[in-house]
Nucleic acid binder design. Structure first.
Length: 266
DNA sequence: ACACGTGTTATGCG
DNA sequence: TCGCATAACACGTG
């Protein structure tokens, strides 16, 4: 589910099928997903306008709206996805998880939607409601996007402090877009223990982490999401490292369940 | 019934 | 105030 690759996929869905369509209705009645707005605030701001561009930084998306309208921010949280359903029966589902489909454009876990003049709808489908929709979202505090950051930006993100390297990789203000699964893949690929403090990393460690990050992010975007990452099948009880066969071990690092090779990432 | 979880954020501590 | 750790958030799944 949503880490940077899934969000990029969702952004593409909006870009391909959600732009330039006049908005004639907005369901913003889920007060948790649309916080801190009150019901009707997002609706009032968007009625009559259209989305005209879809952007992404890390796991955050935002859309420009016509006539100098506000930006519409969408965050998929832990379980959100974007679906666009059209009257002709076309339905573009931006994720293959949490189906909940009851009919065309009808989802058990629909939390927010835009209805277009032609009857089509763009929906946020999100069982756990940790996703978020808001006007003019704050994105300034996010670090550089993990898919496009420069080597200098990556080095800077790891250059200070004492946090475990995995916690730093997950820190969206340091680098934007890496989630728990990408982090495990990156650390396994670079052969670095998730609990290693950033101030104990060598220059070579950082170089390997940079290359591993670029590789993991790009392959996950290309192959359809973080579920396709190589380490995923081995993040389970009894799992063994696909490189050397040593047991994969599980613990909590940076507040998240982490798996790593007991030998290569000792 | 109960623990877990691919994300974010408020709170607390040194 | 800063850097970091932890709990809380909501709710479906195993």
């Amino acid at each position: 589910m949503p880490e940077l690759p899934e969000v990029e996929s969702a952004r593409t869905v909006i870009e391909r099928a959600g732009l330039g369509r006049k908005i004639v209705d907005v369901d913003d009645t889920d007060t948790y997903v649309c916080r801190p707005h009150l019901p009707g605030q997002i609706r009032d701001a968007l009625l009559g306008r259209a989305l005209v561009a879809a952007h992404r930084r890390g796991k955050s998306m935002w859309c420009d709206t016509s006539d100098d309208g506000p930006e519409l921010g969408i965050h998929l949280g832990m379980s959100g996805k974007i679906v666009i359903a059209d009257p002709d029966g076309t339905e573009i589902d931006g994720g293959d998880y949490w189906e909940g489909r009851r009919g065309l454009g009808d989802y058990r876990w629909g939390r927010f939607s835009l209805t277009f003049a032609d009857g089509g709808r763009l929906m946020l489908v999100d069982p756990r409601r940790l996703g978020r929709v808001r006007l003019d979202p704050p994105i300034a505090s996010l670090g550089p996007d993990a898919a496009t950051m420069t080597p200098a930006e990556f080095r800077a993100a790891l250059a200070s402090g004492t946090a475990p390297v995995k916690a730093r990789l997950l820190d969206q203000e340091a680098i934007a877009g890496i989630g728990n699964l990408l982090a495990d893949q990156i650390l396994w690929s670079a052969r670095i223990n998730p609990g290693r403090r950033v101030d104990r990393l060598t220059a070579d460690d950082v170089d390997r982490l940079l290359r591993a990050t670029r590789r993991a992010v790009r392959s996950a975007i290309r192959d359809g999401g973080v579920h396709t990452l190589g380490i995923i099948p081995f993040r389970s009880p009894g799992g063994r490292c696909p490189r050397d066969g040593a047991p994969m071990v599980k613990s909590t690092v940076g507040g998240r369940t982490s798996w790593w090779c007991s030998r290569e990432q000792a």
